[in-house]
Design a binder for these strands. Structure first.
Length: 628
DNA sequence: GCCGTTTTCGGCCCGACTGTTTTCAGTCG
């Protein structure tokens, strides 16, 4: 079965090739948009295209695909063709007409389809090597719009591309953004400063960082921004916008420490993974009176923003970053003609004027949020009262049971589950059955004398490649909490992965499916099981699917969380604590939950102690906590 | 190529910055 990612990849390739061929730009946009939608879709389109799936099984596949907003008859047919034959005729034809190397050129900053097509048609450039050649021999200067400065910028962009500059993970980007915002708030004249963009939406990776300021002294703001510590290069500097490349701190890459070891051999940690990394940071200077509309404009995804503007137009209004204005179809933008906006000062005000409830930033992805009637209640960091996945020095953590308990108490938690690794995780010093019994007894003993928090004895038990668990049922039955997680064989085929995880979810003693796919963001993709089947089984067996809060993992990912939430599945947000500072990762897990529309009541970590403990006990056929 | 509480045809979001073009095209978000 073709995955959504594969389908999205094919569609976006069609868009790219159409663009290079100078085809109708709206066809291009349609394919791009469809690709984005497919990628973010919680349901598996391949399954639908193949005529599968349950709820509307009798409806023709084509019709069901077309029910997805953004997919029409043509694209539906292409998806079906892709699913049934493994290829798309149109894509093959397009590929035959365009040199394969042009795709890479489009990834170079500042090079768009027009310029790449120009290079190809006028200078015979078909790949990166060809581009370097025409730059070196100077022939590129003979092309239209290619002067010395343009070529110099291009050189720079090629060098950056060669460094493999890629997206930053949420946990790497957020500290940079917070530092920039804090620094800008100290600048003379600055009234407000916030970061926006995909970072404010809490996406798992970001391509750049957008920072907004409202100030009485735009010049001072621009100067201060371009002179911030860590700025390597000023890319552009204008009255309302500046762009720089900024170094990313070494200490953002904590993954190299604890946590990595559990992955086993062959996944060598890279302590200097973040060394030399940089990120583009854009500063936007906006009028204070437009703060709300500007923040909205620079926070919403492209599709979300388009959706809002279309909505505005239907209401006889026009929306831009300066505000929501009456639409008079004048050529000059309303703000330049002194027209007073209907709303602009705060996001709340603008949403209200659009007839919408306030939409939290994490939801602004055009995944149905513009149809909301009221602001949904989403899980917050302050709601989290329990950590159900933590390691001590008995396996690969740093803390003793007591220190771990105190760290959890300091966060205001009522419950902490100690879940060290099981025996197969040899590199993580997994516990033999005998050690586990001793350890569980030690946890319970500690629980007796530490007041103010309930300590639970548990295990993060390996789900072996065939879906069996790493301890036998007698031993598992003595535990308060069983987190079952895959750690090895993470590249097995989807069908095998599905069967493997289903077996774990169906196991009567499993409470939580830990980091279900085992992916590491930007490093390895992990398992690709049929998530719909996993979710359905988890609902049936009252197993919680974990959002592992480490920013390297964020596993479940946001779109799967959404599917799980829609299905009524329980979710656990766990920090997978190995060191005291790992509790700080909670906010990344919460952001991911919010992106999946997760309400607090569906997240077991928010439950009151009694309710949480009752759920844990109920999974083991009424066995009472305290062991045998 | 998609879409429709003003449309099944004719639209499709909006603005800033850069470089080179003396009035704008291309790119980006």
């Amino acid at each position: 079965m073709a995955s959504n990612a594969e389908i999205a990849g094919a569609l976006s390739q069609i868009a790219q090739l159409l663009e290079l061929l100078g085809e109708d730009k709206f066809r291009v946009i349609s394919h791009q948009k469809a690709a984005r939608i497919v990628e973010g879709l919680p349901l598996e389109l391949g399954q639908i295209a193949a005529g599968g799936g349950t709820p509307e099984g009798l409806k023709p596949a084509r019709q069901r695909l077309m029910d997805v907003d953004g997919i029409g008859p043509k694209i539906a047919d292409k998806i079906i063709e892709f699913e049934t034959t493994g290829r798309i005729g149109e894509l093959d034809e397009l590929r035959a007409r365009v040199p394969a190397g042009l795709g890479e050129l489009l990834q170079i900053g500042g090079l768009g389809p027009k310029t790449v097509a120009l290079l190809w048609k006028e200078a015979g450039v078909t790949d990166l090597a060809g581009l370097k050649r025409v730059i070196d021999d100077g022939s590129i200067l003979g092309l239209p719009r290619m002067g010395e400065k343009a070529v110099e910028k291009l050189r720079h962009a090629i060098a950056l591309h060669a460094e493999g500059q890629t997206r930053l993970r949420l946990g790497e980007a957020l500290p940079v953004a917070e530092r920039v915002v804090a620094a800008m708030r100290e600048v003379r004249g600055v009234k407000r400063a916030e970061f926006a963009g995909s970072l404010r939406r809490g996406r798992e990776t970001v391509g750049d960082i957008d920072v907004l300021v409202a100030t009485t002294d735009a010049h001072a703001a621009a100067e201060a921004f371009c002179g911030l510590p860590g700025v390597r290069q000023v890319l552009s500097k204008g009255e309302t916008r500046c762009s720089v490349r900024m170094s990313v701190d070494l200490d953002a890459g904590r993954w190299a420490g604890a946590g990595e070891k559990e992955e086993g051999a062959g996944e060598a940690p890279s302590p200097a993974a973040s060394a030399g990394k940089s990120v583009q940071v854009d500063l936007r200077v906006v009028p204070e009176a437009s703060w709300g509309s500007a923040l909205m404009y620079f926070t919403g995804s492209k599709d979300h923003n388009v959706r809002l503007r279309e909505r505005a137009l239907k209401m006889g209004l026009t929306l831009n970053d300066y505000g929501l204005f009456p639409n008079d179809d004048h050529e000059t933008p309303p703000q330049e003609r002194g027209i007073k906006p209907v709303a602009s000062r705060t996001e709340q005000e603008v949403f209200k004027a659009l007839g919408l409830p306030y939409i939290p930033p994490e939801l602004r992805e055009d995944r149905g949020e513009v149809a909301l009637k009221k602001t949904p209640t989403l899980v917050e960091v302050a709601d989290i009262r329990a950590e159900l996945h933590a390691h001590t020095a008995a396996s690969d953590g740093e803390l003793s049971i007591e220190d771990l308990a105190r760290a959890a108490m300091a966060r205001g938690f009522h419950t902490l589950a100690v879940t060290d690794h099981s025996k197969s995780s040899v590199i993580a010093n997994g516990l033999s059955p005998e050690r586990l019994r001793t350890h569980a007894a030690a946890v319970r003993a500690a629980g007796k004398h530490i007041k103010g928090i309930t300590l639970l004895a548990g295990s993060e038990v390996d789900i072996l490649a065939d879906g069996s668990l790493d301890y036998d049922d007698d031993l598992l039955g003595t535990l308060d909490v069983v987190v079952a997680s895959p750690h090895t064989a993470l590249s097995q085929a989807p069908e095998l992965a599905t069967r493997r995880l289903l077996r774990a979810v169906e196991h009567p003693m499993v409470h939580i499916l830990g980091h279900p796919t085992g992916r590491l963001i930007l490093r390895r993709s992990g398992l690709s099981p049929d998530m719909g089947a996993i979710i359905a089984a988890a609902v049936e067996h009252r197993v919680a699917l974990e959002i592992n809060a480490h920013w390297m993992r964020l596993d479940l990912r946001d779109t799967h969380v959404k599917a799980a939430v829609d299905a009524g599945c329980l979710i656990a947000i766990n920090c997978d604590v190995h060191a005291s500072s790992d509790f700080d990762n909670l906010r990344f897990g919460v952001l991911t939950g919010r992106r999946g529309w997760l309400p607090p009541e569906q997240c077991v970590n928010t439950w009151a102690a009694d309710r949480l403990h009752e759920w844990l006990r109920s999974k083991q056929g009424g066995r009472r906590r305290g062991g045998r």
